[in-house]
Design a binder for these strands. Sequence first.
DNA 1: AGGGCTATGTATAATGA
DNA 2: TTCATTATACATAGCCC
Lengths: 146, 146
Amino acid sequence: MGRGKIEIKRIENTSNRQVTYSKRKNGIIKKAKEITVLCDANVSLVIYGSSGKMYEYCSPKTNLIDMLDRYQRLSGNKLWDAKHENLQNEIDRIKKENESMQIELRHLKGEDITSLNYEELIAYEDALENGLTNIREKKASLFFIN
Amino acid sequence: MGRGKIEIKRIENTSNRQVTYSKRKNGIIKKAKEITVLCDANVSLVIYGSSGKMYEYCSPKTNLIDMLDRYQRLSGNKLWDAKHENLQNEIDRIKKENESMQIELRHLKGEDITSLNYEELIAYEDALENGLTNIREKKASLFFIN
DNA sequence: AGGGCTATGTATAATGA
DNA sequence: TTCATTATACATAGCCC
């Protein structure tokens, strides 16, 4: 476009290449913004040239992280490294631990026990009696210490 | 461009919007490829519309992960580091929750109670008695149900 | 490096099949 | 609906500052 047609191949003249880069970069960013508004689309665009300077555009309704999250889910490609997976796994593991402790705590307080069978009830009874004994011993011992 | 000028605002007609989206998406991808070749640039482009289907273009010399790594370094914006931090915060939060539940459980079992004061001991004693009452009631009720 | 200017090539909105 | 077609609007290559 412009005064002459050009082939789509690397522009050898450095300054021409630089100028064209700058112009076209702006063009692409403009197009990205337009499609965002016109079509309710989400666009994430990261672009850099040989100068190393980088430009980014991301549609307003979202952000790069969400875009990439979505990209990962839809494409199946892994972007975040193993570290993230590990962190996520750890969270899952701790959450499970957490949940079972919460259940145990509730049971010890005599809550949510309708589903417990006789053996489980006995086990909790024993645990509670045991705890009670220990607590009472400790309580009693306070009088001797002071 | 085309038969009439259009304002850059959301196209209300759904099928028009869909058609325009598709055309412009291809246009942007084409432009992205061109600037890549012409100017030796690196481009990462992720785009999706209301259909949910997602397109991605990334210049051949690189890949999304490298682009984003570079983006992080140059822009100073945290990307997966932000995500990483969020995960770490969640882990810390859950771990704290976890720990306090573990302490409570141990206390209820009469363990690690040397540091407890008299009031705390009374509170645990009450809780245990309460739990025991509930458990025993439930236990007793089993005989009536069967 | 930008910024402005055309002439020209492209992208595309509207239309029709 | 999805394709061609086509008239227009837009983007931009080559210039000059």
